[in-house]
Amino acid sequence: MRNPFVAWLARLGLGPVPAANRAGAAEAADWPEHLASEVLPGLRVDRQLGSYETRAHWQGVEIDVSIDADEDVAAALHTAHQLWADQGSWQARILARAVADLLLTYNESWQDEEDGADLTADAFAARLTIESISAGADGEFTFYFADGDMFSGHTVFVRGSLQDGPRKANLGG
Rank of each mutant, 00 (worst) to 15 (best):
97 R>W: 13
97 R>A: 12
97 R>Y: 09
98 A>V: 13
98 A>K: 07
99 V>D: 03
99 V>Q: 02
100 A>R: 15
100 A>E: 13
102 L>Y: 03
103 L>N: 01
103 L>P: 01
104 L>D: 12
104 L>N: 05
104 L>G: 01
105 T>W: 09
106 Y>T: 06
107 N>P: 01
109 S>N: 05
109 S>A: 08
110 W>K: 05
110 W>G: 06
110 W>I: 06
114 E>P: 00
114 E>V: 12
114 E>K: 10
115 D>C: 00
117 A>V: 04
117 A>Y: 00
117 A>W: 00
118 D>P: 00
124 F>A: 09
124 F>C: 06
125 A>V: 11
127 R>H: 14
128 L>K: 03
128 L>A: 08
128 L>S: 07
128 L>F: 04
129 T>Q: 11
130 I>L: 15
131 E>A: 05
133 I>C: 11
133 I>R: 15
133 I>N: 14
133 I>F: 11
134 S>H: 11
135 A>D: 07
136 G>N: 10
136 G>D: 08
136 G>Y: 12
138 D>T: 11
138 D>Q: 14
141 F>G: 02
142 T>A: 15
143 F>I: 12
144 Y>D: 05
145 F>G: 02
146 A>N: 06
147 D>G: 02
147 D>R: 01
149 D>N: 11
150 M>S: 11
150 M>E: 03
150 M>H: 06
150 M>R: 12
151 F>R: 14
152 S>N: 03
153 G>F: 09
153 G>D: 04
153 G>T: 10
153 G>S: 05
153 G>Q: 10
154 H>W: 10
155 T>R: 06
156 V>R: 08
156 V>P: 00
